[in-house]
Each structure stands twice: as structure tokens, then as C-alpha cells.
């Protein structure tokens, strides 16, 4: 299983965790994050979400996040998969697995990874709610913006 992926298939956290921990006797901690589609947002009743990606660049940005984690937490291994297409309420949109000898690094790397996904990965969600639909827009993606990267690191290490 690839360390990072953008896929239209349902996400399988158990499979990714198994893959990331296979044969690693020196690991003492696994931290995971799962992002779910929820039924409400900003006072709107959400019916479902549609995710769109610029796939080759999204995969590249995910790999960059893996590299950044490796630079800050050299003992951590990171697996990260983002789903695209139509997702129903309660389905997983993203799964992240961070494996490390110690829990502090695993938690920090996992949190850092999701913050960076929201900053630099070219994926967009279109919210279909009761009464309409809207493209959600968050951060202007700029991987070289060191201030954003440090903000993600601060949140991760808080």
C-alpha cells in the first residue's frame, strides 16, 4: 500500500495501520486521525460532500508533508490517504497514521500532518446542503510559506 494516496475508494484505517506497522519491532506508538463527513456546517444541514483534487499535485503535496514530518520527527513513519468523489455523512474523507518509538512524536506528527493537508494540498470540497450547494475555500496554498508551516508545527506541539 502506498504511503500516500488520493483515491475514490473507501478508506481503510485498519489496512493502512497494518501496512505502516508491519515488521517494525522498535515502534511503541501509533497515532491515527480520521476525518469524517458531518451532517452540519456553519448552521447548514449538510446532505453530502463532493471532493475534487488536482491529483498529481495533491499526491506531490502529500509526499511533501511526509518529507516535512521526516525532517522534524526523524523516527516517525507517516501514512496518509485522502478520498475524493461523493462522500456520504459519516464516511471518512482522510486517514492519517503516524508510527513512532514514542507517543509524543506520533501524536505531534499526526496533528501536524492534518494541519498541513488543510494548508497546502490541492483538494476542494463542495458542500451539498439543504437548500443549495457551495464550494468551501480555506487557505491559499503556498508550501513555501514558512509562517504557515511553523503555525502548523506550533499547533502540533502545543
Amino acid at each position: 500500500m502506498a504511503q500516500v494516496a488520493v483515491t475514490a475508494d473507501p478508506l481503510d484505517l485498519d489496512a493502512l495501520t497494518r501496512d505502516m506497522t508491519a515488521g517494525a519491532a522498535g515502534d511503541g506508538a501509533v497515532a491515527t486521525f480520521t476525518g469524517l463527513v458531518r451532517d452540519h456546517n456553519q448552521g447548514r444541514k449538510v446532505r453530502f460532500l463532493e471532493y475534487e483534487a488536482y491529483e498529481p499535485l495533491a499526491v506531490r503535496a502529500l509526499r511533501r508533508i511526509v518529507d516535512e514530518v521526516g525532517a522534524t520527527w526523524p523516527d516517525v513513519r507517516l501514512g496518509l490517504r485522502h478520498r475524493i468523489g461523493r462522500l456520504e455523512i459519516g464516511e471518512a474523507s482522510i486517514i492519517i497514521v503516524a508510527v513512532s518509538p514514542h507517543r509524543a512524536d506520533a501524536f505531534a506528527a499526526c496533528r501536524y500532518a492534518i494541519e498541513r493537508v488543510k494548508q497546502i494540498v490541492p483538494i476542494w470540497k463542495r458542500e451539498h446542503f439543504e437548500g443549495g450547494e457551495v464550494w468551501l475555500e480555506g487557505a491559499t496554498a503556498d508550501p513555501d510559506d514558512e509562517a504557515s508551516r511553523l503555525a502548523a508545527e506550533r499547533i502540533a506541539c502545543a
Binding site: I123, K125, L136, A139
Partner: peptide, 9 residues
């Protein structure tokens, strides 16, 4: 490519 602000996750 021209990319609006992103909203993944």
C-alpha cells in the same frame, strides 16, 4: 493550473 484556496481534510 489556477487553484482557488484549498479545503481538503
Amino acid at each position: 493550473a489556477f487553484l482557488p484556496p484549498v479545503s481538503g481534510g
